[in-house]
Nucleic acid binder design. Sequence first.
DNA 1: GCTACTTTCTATACGTGTATAAAAACTCAT
DNA 2: ATGAGTTTTTATACACGTATAGAAAGTAGC
Lengths: 212, 212
Amino acid sequence: MSTRTGRPPKISRREIVTAALRVIEEDGTGALTMRRLAREVGSTAMALYHHVRDKEELLLLLLDDYAAAIPRPALPDEPRERMVAAAMAMHDAVSGCPWAVDILKADDLMSVGALWYPEQIVDAAVHAGLTIEEAVDVYRIIWHYTAGEIGGRAAARRRREEGGPTYRERVFAELDAEEFPRLSTVARRWEDLTARDTYAKGVRAIVNGLLP
Amino acid sequence: MSTRTGRPPKISRREIVTAALRVIEEDGTGALTMRRLAREVGSTAMALYHHVRDKEELLLLLLDDYAAAIPRPALPDEPRERMVAAAMAMHDAVSGCPWAVDILKADDLMSVGALWYPEQIVDAAVHAGLTIEEAVDVYRIIWHYTAGEIGGRAAARRRREEGGPTYRERVFAELDAEEFPRLSTVARRWEDLTARDTYAKGVRAIVNGLLP
DNA sequence: GCTACTTTCTATACGTGTATAAAAACTCAT
DNA sequence: ATGAGTTTTTATACACGTATAGAAAGTAGC
């Protein structure tokens, strides 16, 4: 029958994931360590590794849970606008989970709970007249841009919190105006210029540049 | 006078950086640890921290060195093509240093040795008729896309080397064709579809979408 | 009941980045 | 010369992710 053999498990994947979400909510992503998580579920660190391949997979599962729970926005009918809206919703969703930054290396798309976004983007691209292969390209390009933008923003925020002179600030301070005429004119305003949110602008550019 | 006070240094920043480059070249980026690097320069791990803020800054210095040494390609005159060519050169340069992946979180641009690329892109954008602010936006959007693309590619390669079923493969294997009609039609071809290099396509799209 | 087998859990250990404290080696004022 | 001040180096320690080995706790066949 379905009676499983072997020592019966004390903890489960679900238990681990929910405990991880609780830890993050209470004490932030920095507090989510394997040992802390083990303590939280009343077990040892290494026991977790029988339910999760490694910490990265755990974070992926968290993103999965999180993304699946987010309400999906109504998207416009017009393909171009639909792609932009889906991309921005995806951006918001991933931005909303701080631990996502550590997973953004993931090559293409994300977990099953988040597949809705690529599906919408690919579908809209096909409706816009692209082949399915081209549509996948569009999605991947948008995803790479999204991942880079979120990663960059997270890094910028982290630097700001830490305080102290950034490497860039030191570089910009002694910038050679002859070698870098353009950059030196904006060097002092760089902080303000790069604080603005240009994600929407970028997505619109990609969509417009990719659809004829 | 210029006689400095305090205990005279045994090691220098330059020495550290060149030793780090040597280690990477000989044994790969995985071998570059602070302890190994210390052994290489005949010192202790913690002594390095008086010349380098942390490992991330060290990697930034490596990128700096590396980028500064790369020959700069001749760029076309026409602004659009110049932006694309500069972006692709930047992409090649960063792709060429494996350790760059760990720094790609860096918010905007890179080290002083690599400033040539943003300078060219911003300059070309201004020549194309954009304001300096818009030109900076263009550069940042291109950079975010570039960082995301390289990060994604590196992750994909890493997964491939490790072998074993990817998380995505497991997800795609049991994909609901009704909920995800588009994705399920390409699920089996996904590996091949995403293996293609679409960076140039993406940059062209961004440039065309951003210049009127 | 006993032995094999399987799965899960525990204990221990390694190498990592780096915080902290103190020692060491120099210059300068006295 | 001596003591104060400054900079660099060393020693020690911590928490992290996780590899490895083996113990524990169950089922199945005899």
